[in-house]
């Protein structure tokens, strides 16, 4: 039987992040401009499986996706304990910059979704000249809590079941069931308290207010794309963000919070023209 081999290579490497050694897993495919992709809270790099297989993109971009520490195949740092994980803005920035420095990437494009869509705003504020462009998927400047996130990590509720249930609803009813199921499955495989720990960044520490005005699109082009079914980072919130920065946002029809994973075919229709502009 012939197998359909994908062009993706998986790698492990030890990176120093904030002075602590971390064993990080990443996948990559393609050649050209480095395109570093950031997964959502509580998930891992498999969300970008379609991008890593898109021949058109791989001709011009070296697509690189790493699993954040504690996520996917990346290890927790030494001396970790269950229940103590909390993602801060500072540590998230350190992970990304350490990864980019470690791979000696020069002026990469960084694309992030959800928490990744938030952190690219921090990157735009703090290091605009380090990037060729920044792409935010499901970006919003801040998010006020709208449900009690303590349900995501308590010993009398199965974390995988509840995290999967939360993620499922964030997707569009029009997205293909198989891709939705896979997206949900990644959430069901997350470690105890990791999704909740990431949301500390998303709903508290990483909120940005008037600092958004510091973003200068002329120093680093920013692109914002948001799925219409997302109720976490809504198209209205992305639009408000885009208006403040002075750019146009792209509203994606028939997708929700995880465009690259829940409906890759639809998402790529929107992403291709953006990457052509960057190229």
């Amino acid at each position: 039987m012939k197998i359909e081999k994908e062009p993706i290579t998986g790698n492990y490497g030890k990176f120093e992040i904030d002075g602590v050694k971390h064993r990080i897993y990443w996948e990559e495919a393609g050649e050209g401009i480095p395109l570093v992709c950031l997964h959502t809270a509580g998930s891992d790099g498999r969300q970008y499986r379609a991008l890593l297989n898109d021949r058109k993109i791989l001709k011009k971009f070296r697509v690189i996706v790493f699993d954040m520490p504690w996520h996917g195949k990346s290890s927790p740092p030494e001396n970790s304990q269950v229940g103590h994980y909390k993602l801060s803005t500072e540590s998230y920035i350190s992970q990304i910059m350490s990864f980019i420095d470690g791979l000696e990437l020069v002026k990469p494009v960084v694309m992030g979704c959800s928490i990744g869509g938030r952190i690219i705003l921090h990157l735009a504020i703090n290091f605009p000249k380090k990037f060729k462009a920044l792409i935010g998927l499901q970006s919003a400047g801040h998010l006020d809590p709208y449900y009690d996130i303590s349900w995501l990590h308590r010993q009398d509720v199965h974390g995988g079941e509840v995290c999967g249930g939360i993620a499922y609803g964030l997707m569009a009813p029009t997205s293909p069931e198989n891709d939705k199921f896979e997206t949900m499955w990644h959430y069901m495989q997350g470690g105890p308290g990791i999704f909740k720990g990431d949301l500390f960044f998303y709903k508290f520490d990483g909120n940005i207010g008037t600092e958004i005005k510091k973003i200068d699109n002329s120093k680093c082009p920013i692109f914002l794309l948001t799925g219409e079914y997302d109720y976490s980072a809504t198209p209205e919130e992305t639009k408000s963000l885009a208006d403040t920065i002075g750019i146009e946002m792209i509203k994606m029809k028939n997708v929700g919070h995880f465009p690259m994973s829940e409906n890759p075919k639809e998402f790529l229709k929107y992403l291709h023209p953006v990457l052509e502009k960057i190229n």
Binding site: Y146, Y147, I166, Y168, G169, L170, A172, P173, T174, E228, Y229, D230, Y231, S232
Partner: peptide, 16 residues
């Protein structure tokens, strides 16, 4: 059968 954004999920309704 195909609800509009914001009406497609009970947590979406909670959010609104």
């Amino acid at each position: 059968s195909t609800p509009q954004p914001g009406s497609h999920d009970i947590i979406a309704m909670l959010r609104r």
